[in-house]
Every structure is written in C-alpha cells, then in structure tokens.
Design a protein around this nucleic acid. Structure first.
Lengths: 338, 338
DNA sequence: GCTATTTACTTAAACGGTTAAGTAAATTAT
DNA sequence: ATAATTTACTTAACCGTTTAAGTAAATAGC
C-alpha cells in the first residue's frame, strides 16, 4: 500500500501542495473552510508526513539522541526515564544509542550524528574513552551536546554530575568508621573524570585518616568473567582488603559471588559500599550499602538544559557544571543488621 | 560551521554532483583516477552525507526500531544486546523506543513509523495492549515487523517466544514438588499472550496435581507502590499463599521486601519462582529460583528473521512461531540451601 | 471611484542526495 | 575505414516536504 503524500491530498482537493502544507500547519494564510477540508481529508486518509522530507527541508529533526554505555545499569535506565519525561513534554523523539563501553562504537555513533540525524545529544562516555577528537568534531558542528555522569571535561559545554569527590570520600570514610583498615576501590576506568573524582575522594579520606598501604584503585575491565577472576584473586590474597568501594554497580555482584565462593562473610570479613541505584539493594544477602545518585533527576536536568539550547535561536551552551548530591544509604554490607 | 555537501565537493573538483555521488559509492561508471580524487577530498574535508537526503531519495533508512516496554528489566536489556549484535554485522542503525508500558505511547510510536522513519520493527507489547489496530495499521504499510517475547498473536508475522506454557507449568510443578499447597501467580497483564500461556501452564499443573482453591492469577499494575501494598495485603491474609510464581522480574523485589517486613521467611513460609534474567539472582537473600529465558538469543533470532525480510526484494514474513526453551534454575527461594 | 491593503491562494525554488537517460570521446570490432 | 561498443562522465528529474515570492480577487480606506 503506497503512502499518502501531500501531492495526493493536493490533487484530490484541487489545491497546491503548498496550500495543503500550510493548512496542516494551521497557517493564517489559509481560510478556515479550506483548512477544515484539508484536515478532514488528511485524517480520513490517515496522512502521515514523511519524516525524512520534512527533516531535510527544515534541517531539524525534532529528535535527540541519548548515548550510553549500556542499559543494564540501574543508573542509566533511570536517567533515560528522566530524559524521556522532558522530551515528551517538548514533543521530541528520543533515540537511544548504546556504545557497549566500546570506544570505536562511540566514535562511529558521534560521527553519524554529524549527518544531521539528530538535533542534540545527551551522553555519558565509555569507560575506554581517553581521547576526545570525535567529541570535538561533533561539538564543532554546533550540535548541542550535554554530558551527564560520565562527562568529558575537555569539552566546553554543560555537564551534569553528582558530587563524586564527596561521594568517594563519604563511602571511604564510612568504611573507616566501620573499622576497615585496608580498603580497595574498584573502578572500571582510569580515564573517566568521575572515576578520578571518586578516586580522589577515596584517597583524601585515607589520607585524612592516616591510612597507608591500602590497595588503591583496582582496575576492572568490561569482561565480566575476567573481572570475576580478578576479584577472586584479590580476595584470596592473605593481604586481602577488608573494605571495598565499588564505583560501578555490576562489580558488586562479582564481589558478593566471590565472597560466597571463598566463604568470606559480608560484613564481618569484608564490608562493601557500592555506587548503585538498584532497587534490589535491600534484598541482597546481605543488603547493600550504596551511594545512590539522583539518576532520574540528572536525566531530567540534562534534558532541560539541552532543550534550552535547542529552543533558543542563538543558542550557546556554556561550560557549566551542575552538581547534584548523591546519598549514602547504609545497609547490611557495612553494618551488621539486627 | 556549515556542513560539507556533495555540491561543494563537486564544485571543488569541477565535476557534477552525480559523478561525486557515484564515485563515493564506488560505481564502475567512474574512472579509478577520479574516484581517488573524490575519495581523497571527501575524507580530507570529512564529508558526511546527510542522513535525511539519502533516506528520502532511496526510501530506505538502513535503520530498524526496537520497541520495548522498558529497559530496567534484565530480559530486555539482554535482548537488545542480541539485536544489536546482528544489526551491527548488517550495517544497520538500531533505534530503541520505550513505551513505559503505556498503550498510547505504543500507538504514537507505531504511528510515527508509518512516516517511513525505519525500515523494520522489532517489538514487545505493552502489558496494557489489548487492541491491535495500531499494529495492523503498521503491518498494512508493509513495514516488516517481528515480535519477540510479548508477541501479538493477532498479526500474521514472525514471532519469537519461549515455551511459556511449559515454563508456567514447570515453575508451578516445582513449587508443588517443594510442598506448596496454595500457589499464587503474579502477573502484570490479562491481555498479553505470554501471560496467558504462563497462566495456562500454571493452571494445568494445579489441575494435574489436584490442587484447588489456589488464588489464581493475581494481577499487578505498572505502579510499584501500588503493587507493593497489594502484595502486602495478600501476604498479610491468613489464607496467604505458600508459593508464588512471579511472571515478571520486578514483582520479585516487592515480594522479598514484603516478606522481610512481615517477618515471613523464604523459603520456609513462602517459596517463590520468578521469571528473571537477573545476574544478581544468586546473591539475593535467599538466592532466587528463576525461570531464565535465553534473552540474548531471542534478540538475535528476532533480528535475523527481520533482516531476512529486509534484504529480500520480495519479502514475505509469514505467520511463524519460533519457540525457544527457558530454563528452571533452582536456588534458595524454593529449596533450603546448605 | 480609485488606491492600498488584506485574503487566500499558487508557483517555484529549495533541502541534499540518487539515478535514469543522454552524450561526447575513446576504444574495439569487422 | 566505418560502425558498434565502451568509458566516463553530465543533465535533469525525483524523493516529499517547506517556504519565499508572486498574484488575483476581495475588502478597506479616503
């Protein structure tokens, strides 16, 4: 079945395509009577304008992209919800692109955006991302770009983060307060600004408490099986940590499983705090102490700023940092529950 | 900075835009020497073709859509990975659209697809979806459509599911084998075919074991707070179930939390089996017995079929059902662990 | 009653590619 | 040596909209 086009409506009503187009956009140049006829026919034939034709002509697509490492992380899935809540109000489409923590995918996706496919971009970098030419290239094309969480500090644009230094500090201090002497920080990136901020906070807390020789900044990769063996090795060592700050949700599962396997009990033998928004934190064995970020609100905030840029004719996204607080929620993985 | 267009390249090299276009697509009509000049200039100026112009002319976008209820469910996030693995091989873009279990969003999204925005669609229905006109409309436009998991039986196209009847049966039989006498099934939809298949399997198992008066098919909605109170009420009743089959991952968290609150112990007071792909099933308190679907493979299978349709000139997606087996993984929520 | 303005359109040129059809020059065939 | 074919392009139409510019008729202004 062939699609209905403006031209077909025009022929049917003996009008020009211009008249139809204007009638459908409720232009004052068209008489009320004609508008009615056009709208009636359009809805009767279920006319749906071709998305590409319109976007090509207007050089705007009413579409934004969200570029994320993955979706199997509660932070990102909540952030998406925040973004979509705003986009829906604004009548924009939201396209979700996943990098799977893969730098070359991120490059390819951003390059594609230079084709004008989307009007604006919200993104969180890959853990691998250590160079920024692809981001610069996109930014140079004047496509509004807002970072959230895994921001790119090198680009002058708006960025939404949480208080990562403070969170790293808070998590570490909490473990120290619980009696930990040897605290490890599990990270998935040596490049990401937020990882480094969390690491800085962790280091500062150790320093302020005069703790030395802690096995600092243990780096995990993107392969779960490898991470598991790695954590296994760390926890098998007789110099094993008695506290862990997991900067990423998914590492926590591995830690729990390793402890189960090695018959180490949490929180007696090991205490752990994880950056996480998992609703199941409460029902883990034991329940998980978390640093919980305001994921939904961060998504919303990022979207709001992006739309400010999109709706202004002379847009300028300045180099702004918005920091939102995250929360330490103490549960059974650091404090023995009744 | 203005974008580079074919026209600009043409002017620069004193060729027609047609020549440039053909050179870039490596046409035999263009001399090797000219091709080289064109390609050299194009890559030097970082020429990126306008996505809308090409798609408009070719009436193909090399883009497929994945329409999902949500992404905060391990089944869907894994299925996406399977889909993207195939799409990447084929050089297609994947756009993810979320319905948030909202029927009118689903309608709006499918309607939009009639604009030719995507070449094909993979989808899982909303829990609310009880009428199918919007799906018929899309299907009538000859846009290839493949369902996975939450399929629409009323539409003649390819469908990928798991053995939902058998899974419902298996889960129920397992609870019966563990001694349950009063088994509830928690569902989020009275409309979805897969919900009904699971329910049928559950009923059959009860029947085969001569169990009557089980509180059949308890319906939960999309609001977590409401679900929580609802489950709370059920579990507070003195006629409360001693076994639960949760047909959806997210309901499990509520059940665990309610039991914690009411000081009911799992599996002594209540045994529960949940449809879930959560990697954290193992570290819950207690670990969770699951029916686990081959989510990644289902995504792959759905994508493979869709691409068969997309790549054939005279495509026909027949009314086919592909059923893949899911697996019962017995853990601590039904059997007391050592 | 004649000019100025408004109304309600139409025409045609974009947007940035792709492609069918045409063509001049070079090559091959006979 | 001439016709047939191949090579390497160009021209122009087209995809389906939007929109600037043009226009004829109706209305308003004085």
């Amino acid at each position: 079945m062939d699609n209905i086009t403006l031209k077909m409506l025009a022929k049917e009503l003996n009008l020009s395509t211009a008249a139809i187009s204007k009638a459908l956009r409720d232009s004052h140049e068209i008489s009320t009577h004609t508008k009615q006829r056009v709208q009636e026919l359009a809805s009767r034939l279920n006319y749906i304008p071709n998305a590409y034709a319109g976007s090509l002509r207007r050089r705007k697509s009413k579409t934004i992209a969200v570029v994320l490492p993955e979706v199997a992380d509660s932070f990102f899935s909540l952030a998406i919800n925040g973004i979509e809540a705003i986009a829906e109000q604004k009548g924009y489409h939201v396209l979700i692109y996943l990098t799977h923590e893969n730098f070359s995918r991120e490059q390819a996706i951003l390059k594609d955006f230079q084709s004008g496919r989307v009007d604006g971009v919200l993104m969180s970098l890959t853990a691998e991302t250590a160079s920024y030419q692809h981001v610069c290239d996109l930014h140079a094309k004047d496509i509004p770009l807002v970072f959230f969480d895994r921001v790119c500090e090198e680009i002058n644009t708006a960025k939404i983060t949480t208080d990562d230094f403070e969170s790293g500090y808070k998590a570490t201090q909490h473990l120290i307060d619980c009696g930990c002497k040897k605290i490890a920080l599990l990270s998935i990136s040596n490049y990401l600004a937020i990882s480094n901020r969390r690491l800085d906070g962790y280091r500062q807390a150790l320093k302020d408490n005069n703790i030395k020789n802690s096995p600092i900044n243990i780096y995990c990769g993107n392969d779960n099986a490898v991470n598991y063996r790695f954590i296994q090795r760390i926890m098998s060592d007789k110099e094993r940590p008695d506290g862990i700050v997991a900067t990423v949700e998914k590492l926590t599962t591995d830690v729990y499983l390793v402890c189960k396997e090695l018959q180490l009990s949490i929180p007696q033998d090991l205490k752990i705090v994880s950056f996480s928004n998992l609703s199941s934190a409460d029902i883990l064995n034991p329940s998980l102490t978390t640093i919980t970020q305001p994921a939904f609100e961060m998504g919303k905030a990022a979207a709001v700023i992006l739309f400010k840029a999109l709706e202004k004719k002379s847009f300028t996204l300045r180099d702004e940092n918005y920091t939102m607080p995250s929360e330490l929620i103490i549960r059974g993985s650091t404090v023995l529950q009744k």
